[in-house]
Amino acid sequence: MFTLNPRATLAMYSSGLERRQVAVIEDFALDPAALIAHAESGEPFRAAVGDFYHGIRKPAPSEYANDICERYGDMLRERFEMPPNSVPRVIFCALSITTTEPHRLRPIQRVPHFDTSAANQLAIVHYLCGPEHGGTSVYRHRATGFETISQERIQHYSASLKREVMTEYSPPARYMDCDDPLFARIASYQARCNRALIYPSNVLHSGDIRRVASPDTSPRAARLTLNSFMRFE
């Protein structure tokens, strides 16, 4: 019931000066309605203590996570030039709903972010909502020119961003959905129900949040996504 569609279509794009690959897969799940129904039933969505995510989450079906590795692991290893013979493993997989009002965002939630500085991890965003909720964009940090944050770059990037925020420009209380003095948007991918977006987890990115499910957190009315991290080791 929660398996992926064997007839899904995949397109590869490259973004920015660093030409990082992004995969867009249409009709990702065989039965997206079953995933939405799962979101509506059973265990409730909750906010996780210490999580920087701007909303609430609940675990995704285990069959779904397993199928990502089985169906896409080898292909994604090749397309994203992951280490040869590395084994794909889904280390995180959860249904997510954006609930935080813009004026309640912490400063770190107002700028593009990266999930990890490790080069062997991919992020998978599976949209279970329409384009009116907003897709995802990737960015370049203007001062450093960085579009991805590697382990070698993280110290310089963090110091530069901290200095800018403290002395030059304080990001307003809003979701990042445009260029600003600190970041340039280099590509944008629209949300579409049952579309999946896959990109390296160390890419600077941000959700184009246009609707917040507060106080209504019904999955069918919300910006519902299924977020996964796949690591190659």
Rank of each mutant, 00 (worst) to 15 (best):
16 G>W: 02
8 A>N: 11
38 H>P: 13
9 T>Y: 08
53 Y>L: 03
47 A>L: 09
73 G>I: 03
36 I>P: 09
58 K>A: 10
69 C>R: 15
54 H>K: 08
35 L>V: 11
17 L>A: 13
47 A>G: 10
26 E>G: 11
45 F>C: 03
67 D>S: 02
37 A>Q: 09
55 G>I: 00
41 S>N: 05
34 A>I: 03
50 G>T: 15
46 R>S: 13
59 P>A: 06
71 R>M: 06
8 A>P: 15
64 Y>V: 04
57 R>N: 12
73 G>V: 07
12 M>H: 09
58 K>V: 06
55 G>V: 00
57 R>M: 06
28 F>M: 05
38 H>Q: 07
44 P>H: 02
30 L>C: 13
7 R>V: 10
31 D>F: 05
57 R>A: 13
12 M>I: 08
37 A>Y: 08
34 A>K: 05
58 K>I: 03
20 R>G: 07
61 P>C: 00
10 L>N: 08
71 R>T: 01
13 Y>S: 01
7 R>D: 05
39 A>H: 12
64 Y>M: 01
35 L>T: 13
73 G>C: 06
39 A>R: 09
64 Y>G: 01
71 R>C: 08
61 P>Y: 00
64 Y>S: 02
25 I>F: 04
23 A>F: 11
37 A>T: 13
56 I>S: 12
58 K>G: 09
23 A>S: 14
36 I>N: 07
43 E>I: 14
29 A>W: 09
52 F>K: 14
52 F>V: 13
51 D>G: 07
41 S>V: 03
27 D>N: 11
70 E>D: 09
68 I>K: 06
44 P>I: 03
49 V>C: 08
11 A>T: 15
19 R>F: 04
26 E>A: 10
61 P>M: 00
34 A>G: 08
35 L>A: 12
12 M>E: 05
32 P>Y: 02
48 A>F: 14
48 A>M: 07
25 I>N: 03
6 P>R: 01
10 L>P: 10
33 A>E: 12
21 Q>K: 13
37 A>I: 09
47 A>F: 05
34 A>C: 05
25 I>T: 02
36 I>M: 04
63 E>A: 06
33 A>F: 14
52 F>S: 14
56 I>H: 09
67 D>A: 03
35 L>D: 07
9 T>N: 12
54 H>V: 05
15 S>V: 15
24 V>T: 04
57 R>P: 15
44 P>Q: 00
70 E>I: 12
38 H>Y: 12
61 P>H: 01
19 R>I: 06
19 R>K: 13
39 A>I: 06
29 A>M: 11
12 M>T: 08
67 D>Q: 01
30 L>R: 11
11 A>G: 15
56 I>C: 14
63 E>L: 04
57 R>C: 11
53 Y>T: 04
38 H>T: 12
40 E>H: 12
44 P>W: 02
12 M>K: 07
17 L>D: 12
13 Y>C: 00
23 A>E: 10
35 L>S: 08
31 D>Y: 03
71 R>G: 10
22 V>R: 03
62 S>Q: 12
57 R>H: 14
24 V>H: 07
